[in-house]
């Protein structure tokens, strides 16, 4: 019986060594160690042995079984690892294939510019005010020191709907409305929005465009405050090393009035095609709120003063992104719009 046992062991170990995969090895396990396997048979047959041989034989069978089991586990570990490796091998993908696209849109470049400016002024304590695009002549002109027949009305030919109603030609009527509503209280606002003028659409003109105006009214607001505020704006918007300069100009609703230039962000002031060789780029118009405008809205112009400024997001976007034709903003070509996906932070 002992010989039989050794024979079995040899056979089993050979088969274990010969098993080339997990399945074969499991078959070996079932064949030798299973309930119907020879080792179990041997154990069952021990009843026929004399009683004194039984413990010895029992121990011997156990030794054989343990050894076979141990070798089988060893082999199993190897084969399992081999199986995993084969599986991994077969699962290799071409990682250079494109990923599943994530659908994502983005803001219009004008929104992008407007929100950037809004956020900048919000951080300086400004609120955003908006107003109607179809406006009364009174708020669009008269309340801004532009009475009927004023020569400066020619500067902005308008789309009238009736004698007294027109498409606003600037966002300044929002200032007039806000001042009227605030009834003499200090103000710190930014007013973005669409405006309309009688222009034929071409590369530099659009009958519809956007504006952002700012208005600050308070005690002792000085022209130096305007300059300082605009300087902060220019640096945040166009780069920390930007310088600004003010040039005298004229707007009926401000006195004194100025235009603001920034040092060219492309050449730094040496002169290039962006700044037309001057080193400076005109960005916005501004000034100290005209006392007539304050008085008309019920402010005591001796006690409260203010400054206002206005700029065109189209112009800023064109300068910032190098866009050559204003019509791009209103054509909505996907090949144009989708270029404003990425951040610039």
């Amino acid at each position: 019986m002992e010989a039989q046992l050794n024979e079995l062991k040899t056979q089993a170990l050979d088969k274990i060594a010969a098993a080339s995969n997990v399945k074969e090895l499991n078959a070996v396990r079932v064949a030798y160690l299973g309930k119907k396997g020879p080792i179990t048979d041997l154990l069952k047959g021990m009843g026929k042995l004399p009683a004194e041989e039984r413990p010895k034989m029992g121990a011997l069978v156990n030794v054989v079984r343990e050894e076979v089991t141990a070798r089988l586990e060893e082999r199993m570990a190897i084969l399992e690892e081999q199986a995993i490796n084969e599986k991994l091998q077969s699962e290799t993908i071409d990682i250079t294939l494109p990923g599943r696209p994530v659908k994502s849109g983005n803001a219009h470049p004008l929104t992008r510019v407007i929100e950037e400016i809004e956020d900048l002024f919000i951080s300086m304590g400004y609120e955003i005010e908006e107003g109607p695009e179809v406006e009364k002549d009174y708020y669009n002109f008269e309340a801004l020191n532009l009475p009927k027949g004023h020569p400066a009305r020619d500067m902005q030919d308008s789309f009238y709907i009736s004698e007294d109603i027109l498409l606003r030609t600037h966002t300044s009527p929002v200032q007039a409305r806000t001042m009227e509503a605030k009834g003499g209280e200090p103000i710190k606002i930014i007013c973005p929005g669409k405006v309309y003028r009688r222009d034929n659409d071409d590369a530099t003109h659009s009958h519809q465009f956007t504006q952002i105006e700012g208005l600050v009214i308070g005690e002792d607001i000085r022209m130096s405050d305007l300059k300082g505020t605009l300087s902060v704006f220019a640096k945040k918007m166009f780069g920390e090393d930007r310088e600004i300069r003010l040039r005298p100009s004229f707007f009926p609703f401000t006195e004194p009035s100025v235009e603001m230039d920034i040092s060219c962000f492309k050449c730094g002031g040496e002169g290039c095609n962006v700044c037309k060789k001057t080193g400076w780029i005109e960005i916005l118009g501004a000034g100290m709120v005209h006392p007539n405008v304050l008085e008309m809205a019920g402010y005591d112009s001796k006690r409260l003063t203010g400054f206002a400024f206005g700029m065109g997001p189209e112009r800023i976007a064109m300068l910032k992104y190098g866009i050559e034709d204003i019509r791009h903003f209103y054509t909505n070509d996907v090949r144009f719009l989708s270029q404003f996906q990425r951040t610039e932070v």
């Binding site: 919000i122 400004y126 609120e127 710190k188 607001i221 405050d225 300059k227 300082g228 005298p248």
Partner: peptide
């Protein structure tokens, strides 16, 4: 101001009470 030179105007910020600012 225009004949004195706008470059001579200093840069300051309004000395009004701080307001929180923000979107509605």
């Amino acid at each position: 101001a225009r004949l004195y030179g706008y470059d001579e105007i200093p840069s300051t910020l309004p000395e009004t009470a701080t307001t929180p600012g923000g979107l509605s």
